[in-house]
Amino acid sequence: MFIFFASFLMYLLLVWSGSGIPMIEVVIGLLMATVVTFAYKTWHPEKRLSKRGLDPRRWFGFVAYLFGPFALGLAKANIDVAKRVITGKIRPGIVKVTPALKSDVARTLLADSITLTPGTLTVDIDDAGAFYIHWLYVEDENPSEEQLYGNFAHWARRLAE
């Protein structure tokens, strides 16, 4: 259900031109959202259309995460990588970490967060839910979750599981 509303809202946001939205655009938006939803359903028949993604508390939580801890981590890590680009001091390697996340959405959220904060890059994930992360400066060959990405896993669990 979430994907339907997300694509519909996205369409309306893109056609809105400062004064009202003509009826024909709303109809086209509904049509497009239906097509997208059915296409998604065809690719992933095992996924049920759930109402969980529509919970507004999740949305507020997501926005709070995006502008709070995530933005902070992004800024800190970017300055760190900028220093490494200039000094050329790197010690790369691929480390393994296993956060206890079960749902696909939570894993995707965490993997995207890890990839967006520079210095860490998710390379692969296996069936058991272990993340293989390319790290620009390996401090520890068997790192803890805290060292790699702070409290992102905690947030992913809260928002998407």
Binding site: I90, R91, P92, G93, I94, V95, K96, V123, D124, D126, D127, A130, Y132, H134, V138, E141
Partner: peptide, 18 residues
């Protein structure tokens, strides 16, 4: 990965893991 100090993914691939 070049100059890598550790490559856990390669290790688990050669073990037939991931």
């Amino acid at each position: 990965p070049a100059k890598a100090v550790v490559d856990r993914l390669e290790e688990s691939c050669s073990r037939g893991g991931a």
